[in-house]
Each structure stands twice: as structure tokens, then as C-alpha cells.
Amino acid sequence: MKHNNGSRLSGKWRISDMILYVLIGLCAAFAVLLLVSIIVYVLMRGIGSVNWQFLTTVTSVRKGTVGIAGNIVNTVMIVILTMFIATPVGVGAAIYLNEYAKPGKAVRIIEFATETLSGIPSIIFGLFGRIFFGETLGLGYSLLTGALTLILMVLPLITRNTQEALKTVPNSYRHGAVGLGAGKWYTIRTILLPSSMPGIITGVILAIGRIVGESAALLFTAGSGKALPKTFVAIFPKIFQSGGTMTINLYLSATSEGDFDTAFGSAVVLLVLVFLINLVTKRLAAKYDTQRAKQLPCLHG
């Protein structure tokens, strides 16, 4: 390694510099080693449990099967339910903040609320979801209660990503559309939303990742049901029944049930999922950056 090190001019290395270099290197190495050992350990302990039966059946002593299919279905349903509402609302909020609102007190309050919401720990969301959606609205332990709770949690993520994306759309696009006689809504629908789509999708995928990994907000809202709906139609009433996601199942397997094979098997599935989600977001972000670079001349031109 060649460094433009001032002290080299005087011909000697300062000892304190050496120590700092070593410390800095060690810390970075620690972070990488930590990740590698987590992956290796989880795979070693868990890969043996992951097979077709594990992914497609429900644990049953009578049938002699071990599986997390019910939890996978619950996770997918919570993701769909949550995003179905959170996406339009989050995008709508961003559109208001970026396109309609005039800078002032109202915007500051809304942005502060969004910030605050993103700083609230998930256990508080869980507590609020339990008492508000579960008890006040009488939804009990159900996938719907869980999803409604998570909407509040992922809303800031979508709003912020959409806002970022909207900010990169050149003003000339807006002026052009208005100049051609388009209304505001028409401009948003046909120009602004399509141009900021990669940013919106990034926010949505990040939110999905957050939901897949979430546990504290779901324990007291969605509960821990494991049953798999027998037919496709049976999926719909399941919204009002308790259902544990993969993380909840992992937590219960590792604590009260002491079933570490299922816990590590779930951990493998979860790791693969969140890493895939991470990969997709990075790809999108890279694509988006090149797009933005292409648009940049328009900003000044």
C-alpha cells in the first residue's frame, strides 16, 4: 500500500500512526469476519434441515413432518397486505410533500412526524398495534392486525425513498408538461411517477425486507399461528386469524420450544431471503444512478 504520508518525508514512522493503522484495519476486518462467520455458522447448523419437505409442509407430530410452510405463507400474506396499503399511502405522502405543499410549518410538521415514526422501535409499534388494532378495533391476534401495525412502521421508508426519487426528476419535465397544458395530476401520473419508478420500487423492496425480518412488532399483533390454508379460497378468511411469520417461528423454536433444527433451518431461509432483497435493491440503485447521470445534463441544459 502506498500512502501519501507526510511523516515519511522526515523518514520515520510515528508509532502512534502505526497503532492507529493497525486498529483501523482490525475493526474493518472484524466487520467482514463477523459477517462471514455468521453466514458460515448458520449454514452449517441449518442447511441440513432445509429440504423440500421443510419448505412445503407444516410441523406435525401425527404426520411426522417438520416444516415451516405455514409461516412462509403468513410472511407472504403480511407482506402483501402491508404493502397493498403502505405503498399508495407512502407514495401519496411523498407526492404531497414534493409537488403540492409549499415550504412552511405544515411541511415541517409532516416531515418531523415521518422522521419520528421511523425512529420508534418496533416493540412500541407492537404495543400500539395490540391495544389499538387488536383491542380497540377488536381485530385480535390476526394477520390483519399485524399488517396494519407494520403499515405505520414502513410508511416512512416508502415516503422518503419516493421523495428522493421525485427530487431527481428535473424541473424542466414539470414545466414542459404544464406548458403543454397538462394538469398537475396528469403530470404526476404520466411524467413524474414513471420517471421516479426505480426509486419507488427501491423503497418498496426495502420495506419488504424490513417486514420479512421484523419480529417484535408482530409477536403481539399477528400472533404465532402455524396452520396452512388447505385450499386457495381458505387464504382469505386467514386474514382474520393468528399467523406467525418465519421470524416469529424462529424465535419460538429457539426459546420456548427448544427446537434448534427448525430455528436454524428458518435462519437459513431468512438469510437467503434478506440477502436476495439486498442484492435486488443494490442492482436497482445502480441502475437508477446511471439513469440519473444521464438526466443530469437536462438539469442545466
Binding site: 463477523l34 459477517l35 455468521i38 425480518g213 429457539a254 434478506v274
Partner: peptide
């Protein structure tokens, strides 16, 4: 590391 769920 940031993406790993807390239960893991």
C-alpha cells in the same frame, strides 16, 4: 450485517 434479522 444491517439486513440480518434481529432474531438471527
Amino acid at each position: 450485517l444491517a439486513a440480518i434479522p434481529s432474531v438471527i
